[in-house]
């Protein structure tokens, strides 16, 4: 195990880059932070689209228009039948009078036009909403196929086109952000790994001397890994901070904007630290297996 002198040495060496190579280290952190910012923005947009989609799906419904030559009792029997269909959540009855009243209300000043009609042209209808599990195009379509065959039903109105479109676009966006995110992720590792390589190159003498006096690879490696993690941490905090400020400004204009929760922000920073670790590990691996050339 390490003793106190070694711990304090490792701790001070882990921050050596910030003292000895201010510019390289600073630039690395900025580049990494930009990459991570892109990553975070993509994640955030995906998150918001998901919420939006969920809301839109909640509005997915069917309206069954019914024949107007049937008795109210006969039509009332449809409700239990509808409720037995798997995926149906709630069924609301609107009789033709209520529909007309609503229509009248919508017409407002033009309502007197309705007086010209000799009978109520609006049919009675059922409004059907779905359980969460059935709020997808296939399930809704299946339910529609079922009820349209009933002889009491004249027409089924499915308010789905725009949900479909939204779904398609969300999918495309998610695919695109996955690809971009992956590239950004690799770029971030590459940037860190390169900085650590530079650091190692400029520390080749101290590494050589460490090997000479019998330092283990683990001891030699530790400060570099720590440096990578510190860089990842600072870049992550910087990116997250910028994003938080930006979202605070934007939230005045955009209602219902979802931001990362505290746990998600923390997770993001931990992820950045891991990224830093991975980058410096990649850089170290090759170096330490080489001959020490003493």
């Amino acid at each position: 195990m390490l003793n106190r002198a070694q711990w304090s040495y490792l701790a001070s060496e882990s921050f050596a880059g910030f003292r000895r190579r201010k510019l390289t280290t600073g630039v690395t952190i900025l580049i990494m932070a930009s990459a991570l910012l892109v990553l975070a923005v993509l994640t955030l947009v995906t998150l918001n689209l998901g919420t939006l989609l969920e809301t839109a799906r909640g509005g997915l419904d069917l309206r069954l228009y019914l024949r107007d030559d049937l008795s109210t009792e006969r039509l009332a029997e449809l409700r239990p039948r509808l409720l037995t269909i798997p995926g149906v959540d709630q069924v609301t009855w609107t009789d033709s009078e209520a529909a007309l009243a609503e229509f009248r209300r919508q017409l407002g000043d033009d309502a007197p036009l309705l007086e010209l009609l000799d009978r109520n042209p609006l049919p009675s209808s059922y409004h059907v909403t779905f359980t969460a599990g059935a709020r997808n195009p296939e399930a809704v379509r299946a339910i529609r196929e079922e009820v349209i065959r009933w002889e009491e039903v004249t027409e089924v109105l499915l308010n789905q086109e725009w949900v479909d479109a939204l779904e398609r676009w969300t999918f495309r966006f998610q695919m695109a952000s996955l690809v971009v995110g992956l590239l950004v992720f690799l770029a971030a590792i590459f940037v860190i790994s390169n900085t650590v390589k530079l650091t190692i190159a400029s520390s080749s003498r101290i590494i050589q001397i460490q090997k000479l006096v019998g330092a283990t690879n683990a001891f030699i490696r530790t400060p570099f890994l720590c440096e990578g993690m510190v860089q990842g941490f600072l870049a992550g905090v910087l990116a997250m901070g910028l994003l938080a400020v930006a979202s605070r400004i934007l939230s005045h204009n955009l209602d219902g904007l979802v931001f990362f929760s505290a746990a998600q922000s923390f997770g993001f920073v931990v992820f950045c630290v891991m990224l830093g670790l991975a980058g410096s590990w990649a850089a170290m691996r090759k170096y330490l297996t080489m001959r020490s050339d003493i």
Partner: peptide, 11 residues
């Protein structure tokens, strides 16, 4: 001191 540090000698 560096050589001693590496082998874990106390301060």
């Amino acid at each position: 001191a560096f050589a001693q540090l590496v082998v874990g000698q106390p301060h």
